[in-house]
C-alpha cells in the first residue's frame, strides 16, 4: 500500500539490506551497491546499506553476522524491490494470516541476482552444497 504513495515511496524508495562493515569487508559488499541474499528457497537482490549499527554476534565462540532487511517491497508501486517473502516458507500468524516468521539463515554475496534458469541453478547449487538435496 505505502509503496503506491509518492510521499512515502520517496522516503525509502528501494529495497535494501543492512550489513555490518565487517561482513561487507568479508564479502566485498559496497555501499549502495547490489547484494544477493540466498536461502534454501530462493535468492533476491537488494541494495546494501553498510552501517555500524549492525554488529556481528559472538555465539558460543563463533562469529555470526546479521543482515537486516525491511519487510516492505515488491514489484508494485513506486518503491520497488524484491520481496523478502520469496526467501521464506509460509508461516502465517494465526490472527491476521500475515507472514509471521522474522528470522532465518541466509547467505549474502555481492552483485545482482540472476533471473530465470540461472536463478534456479544458483539456488540448486546452494541446496546441494548444504546437503538439502542429494
Amino acid at each position: 500500500m505505502s509503496r503506491y504513495l509518492p510521499y512515502l515511496a520517496e522516503l525509502q524508495p528501494r529495497a535494501f539490506c543492512e550489513v555490518s562493515p565487517e561482513l561487507a569487508r568479508e564479502r566485498g559488499l559496497v555501499q549502495n551497491g547490489w547484494a544477493t541474499l540466498v536461502t534454501a528457497r530462493s535468492a533476491i537482490e537488494l541494495r546494501v546499506l553498510i552501517t555500524e549499527r549492525m554488529t556481528p554476534l559472538r555465539i558460543d565462540g563463533g562469529e555470526t553476522h546479521q543482515v537486516g532487511v525491511p519487510w516492505h517491497f515488491g514489484h508494485g508501486g513506486f518503491a520497488t524491490g524484491d520481496s523478502v517473502n520469496d526467501l521464506l516458507s509460509i508461516a502465517l500468524d494465526p490472527n491476521v494470516h500475515i507472514q509471521e516468521s522474522k528470522a532465518l539463515t541466509c547467505d549474502i554475496r555481492p552483485g545482482r541476482t540472476p533471473r530465470g534458469p540461472a536463478l534456479r541453478a544458483l539456488v540448486e547449487d546452494y541446496r546441494r552444497r548444504a546437503g538439502l538435496t542429494p
Binding site: L37, H65, V67, V69, A103, L104, T105, D107
Partner: peptide, 14 residues
C-alpha cells in the same frame, strides 16, 4: 552448527 553463518532478521524485530 556453529560458525560464520548468517542470520537474517527483520529490522527491529526478533
Amino acid at each position: 552448527q556453529h560458525g560464520p553463518h548468517h542470520l537474517a532478521h527483520r529490522t527491529g524485530g526478533a
